[in-house]
Computed example of a mutant assay.
Amino acid sequence: MEILTSRAILRPADPDAALVFYRDVLGLAIAREFPGGTVFFLGDGRLEVSATPSGAPDGASGSGGGLRLWLQVRDLAAAHTELADAGVEVLREPRREPWGLHEMWIADPDGTRIVLVQVPPDHPIRRDVRGDRPQGSTSPA
């Protein structure tokens, strides 16, 4: 199976508040809109914010469930300042984690947790491991 793109789907209790948060506060660009929903560019993925019709077959609710969003930013300190200036509550201040990433936690109006991450230049996540495979290998190491 080949995955070409990905998307997180939110069905918030208040779609209008979520739309304002993702579009205006976080400044995500709109990929497309449709009746009852908006799809945002989210780095190399997508985020869909859509209303949940009453009695939806999937039992979706506005609780935010176990969904978490991981958003990589270029400058965590600048993101922290921008979000604080916009009145966003920071759940956990920026800090370097034991695994080497710089992280800060916020939540959207529905309580969905969002981690903002800055990857330092020397972090292994930046290394292209494709070159580490033996010659002629077509599968991941």
Rank of each mutant, 00 (worst) to 15 (best):
V73F: 09
M104W: 05
A17H: 05
R126Q: 03
S137I: 00
T112I: 11
R11Y: 08
G27A: 09
P140C: 02
R133W: 00
G36W: 10
A17P: 05
A8K: 01
R23M: 09
G65W: 03
I106G: 14
L76Q: 04
I125N: 00
D75C: 09
L76M: 08
D75E: 14
A60D: 06
V90F: 07
S61Q: 00
P98F: 08
D132Q: 05
A84K: 15
I114V: 13
P134N: 06
G37T: 05
A84H: 10
D58N: 12
R96V: 15
T52E: 06
M104V: 11
G131Y: 13
P120C: 03
D132E: 10
R113I: 14
L4C: 07
S139K: 12
R130M: 02
D110R: 09
V25P: 13
V39Y: 08
I106E: 07
V88F: 08
R92S: 13
D44C: 03
G100E: 02
R133Q: 01
P140T: 02
G111P: 06
A79N: 03
A29P: 12
L91I: 11
R23W: 08
G100I: 13
E82T: 05
A56Q: 14
P35E: 12
D58R: 05
S139F: 00
G55D: 12
R133P: 01
V90E: 05
I30Q: 10
T5W: 14
D132P: 01
R46W: 03
T5A: 08
S139W: 09
G131A: 13
T38R: 13
T112M: 05
D122P: 02
D108I: 10
R46F: 12
D110P: 04
G62F: 00
A56G: 15
M1H: 09
F41G: 12
G36Q: 14
A51E: 10
P121D: 15
P124W: 15
S63C: 08
A31N: 14
G100N: 00
L28D: 03
A13C: 07
V115R: 00
E103S: 13
A13L: 03
L71P: 03
D58C: 07
G64W: 02
M104R: 04
R46E: 12
I9W: 11
S61P: 00
I3M: 11
Q135S: 14
R74S: 05
A29E: 15
T52Y: 00
L26M: 12
P94A: 04
V115M: 15
Q72I: 14
W105A: 15
G100S: 02
A31Q: 14
A78F: 06
I3E: 06
R46N: 04
A17M: 05
D75L: 08
H102D: 11
A78Y: 10
L10K: 11
P53Q: 12
G62P: 06
S61D: 05
D132T: 10
S61W: 00
D85L: 08
R113F: 12
V117I: 10
E48G: 09
V20C: 02
Q72V: 15
A56S: 15
Q135H: 09
Q72D: 09
A86V: 09
D58V: 04
A17D: 02
V119E: 04
G131L: 13
A77F: 01
T5N: 11
T52R: 11
D58I: 01
Y22P: 01
V39I: 15
G65Q: 02
S54L: 02
